[in-house]
């Protein structure tokens, strides 16, 4: 096995939903501390790619490596692979924090209960340690006063910040964001992006599916542009936004910049 120094390595990833070929051979590498933004039109397979990274979707072909270990599979000495055990898959998943477009907080639990749930029941943290951690994370996202609030009592922006705190509570090695601000009213987008920028400054490895060009230019080391299940262009924000080469990238960016906001 070669050590590549990358946290995430995606190799020739394919995904079919029945007849629908959604991912058509994705290759992607993300190094520790790197921030990668994924852009692309609706239906291009961005969410599916993210869900394959932590095996929420099982790849049809190809493979994802987390720290050079295959996610969801065990490789025999002769390179044959079979499905990993449920508990090993769960252990892999616990190392990646996920933030969803629709927050997906557990609505029957308070903000702090949401945050301590997985650390206690998956990582085996003591309740007291988990509570202390939750408190410091609530402070980080600016919501200490909301620790006993239920999700239904919070604004979208507040819910998403709690969702970020919940993911961070697992001490993830990498954070995956799937359009974290797309479901928010425009005036609430800023508070969530501020938390994410803060996280980026702290050195977190991040993969962010986003349409926010401001955030992507400011934070991303690299932009990956997807269309029809393929990576069609990739590069640092400066070249990506100012000198896009691919025809589809140019069209997409033109459409983005002509939108009202």
């Amino acid at each position: 096995m070669t050590t590549s120094g990358s946290i995430i390595r995606v190799q020739n990833l394919h995904k079919w939903f029945g007849e629908l070929h959604v991912l058509k051979g994705i290759d992607l590498e993300v190094k520790a501390g790197e921030k990668v933004c994924i852009m692309g039109p609706s239906g291009s397979g961005k969410s599916t790619l993210l869900r394959c990274l932590n095996f929420l979707e099982e790849p049809s072909k190809g493979i994802v490596f987390l720290d050079d270990l295959p996610v969801g599979y065990i490789e025999d000495a002769d390179g044959k692979r079979r499905r990993d055990t449920e508990s090993n898959i769960n252990r892999m998943r616990a190392r990646m924090g996920v933030v969803f477009q629709s927050f997906n907080l557990w609505t029957h639990m308070t903000a702090s209960a949401n945050i301590v749930e997985a650390p206690i029941h998956v990582n085996g943290l003591s309740r007291q340690a988990a509570n202390e951690k939750a408190l410091s994370l609530l402070r980080l996202v600016g919501l200490e006063d909301k620790k006993d609030a239920y999700p239904a009592q919070l604004s979208g922006g507040q819910q998403q910040r709690i969702a970020i705190a919940r993911a961070l509570a697992m001490d993830p090695e990498i954070m995956l964001f799937d359009e974290p601000t797309s479901a928010l009213d425009p005036e609430l987008v800023g508070e969530v992006l501020a938390v994410m920028s803060e996280l980026a400054r702290g050195g977190m490895t991040m993969i962010v599916v986003t349409h926010d060009m401001g955030f992507a230019s400011a934070v991303a080391d690299r932009i990956v542009f997807m269309d029809h299940g393929q990576v069609v262009e990739e590069g640092p924000p400066s070249t990506f936004f100012q000198q896009p080469k691919n025809e589809r990238t140019i069209q997409f960016l033109a459409k983005m910049t002509s939108r009202p906001f």
Partner: peptide, 29 residues
């Protein structure tokens, strides 16, 4: 909402744990 179960799976919760902690309490209410 399916998303709540996705979130639970994404954080490495076992299916039995998801039943006990996420699904059942909400279903009972």
């Amino acid at each position: 909402p399916k998303g709540q179960l996705d979130a639970a799976r994404a954080f490495g919760m076992r299916s039995g744990l998801i039943w006990r902690r996420i699904t059942l309490p909400q279903v009972l209410v």
